[in-house]
């Protein structure tokens, strides 16, 4: 059996002989959605497989299609796509939360205004119904 030489660079293992790259990702740093989006971006130039290893890291295997770019460049390009996707998703989530908070604050201020108005009306008592029957 032939022993393939594996080159380790950052989070990548490159097997030049068998022409594939393994990229290990921590799901606490990169959510699965961002990994899937990055795979979508890579699909036109590489065949991809996604898996989880025993330490629950996400493992992405990339094989360049045809005579594509070198393995290292493919792996590094994948990492760049991943960062862009993960950051965009993080920002979208942050904006969504801010929107919800603003909406919640707006609703609360409307409720407070209405309550204040009701209290005012109650103090004014235009119908005279707040008096005790003995006083009336």
């Amino acid at each position: 059996m032939k022993n393939s030489q594996i080159k380790k660079l950052a989070n990548m293992e490159l097997n030049e002989d068998e022409n594939y790259a393994i990229i290990s990702l921590n799901p606490a740093i990169f959510p699965v959605d961002a990994v899937k989006s990055a795979i979508n971006s890579a699909m036109y130039k590489a065949l991809a497989v996604i898996a989880k290893d025993s330490s629950s890291e996400i493992i992405v295997e990339l094989r360049p299609k045809g005579n594509g770019k070198g393995l290292e460049e493919l792996g590094r390009e994948f990492n760049n796509w991943l960062i862009t996707n993960a950051f965009d998703k993080l920002e979208a989530e942050k904006n969504k939360m801010e929107k919800i908070e603003t909406c919640h604050e707006d609703k609360m201020s409307i409720i407070e205004e209405n309550l204040a108005e009701l209290e005012k009306q109650a103090i004014n008592d235009p119908l005279g119904i707040s008096k005790l029957w003995k006083e009336a």
Binding site: A10, N11, N26, A28, I29, E73, N79, I83, T84, A86
Partner: peptide, 28 residues
């Protein structure tokens, strides 16, 4: 993550490690 994204324009960036302990950035 924001710095990494902005550096992807001119560099290859890899982010790995642990979010609770130490994040490692590799730049080329």
């Amino acid at each position: 993550l924001q710095a990494s994204k902005e550096f992807t324009e001119n560099f290859w960036v890899a982010v790995y490690g642990s979010r609770n302990d130490k994040i490692i950035i590799n730049l080329k």
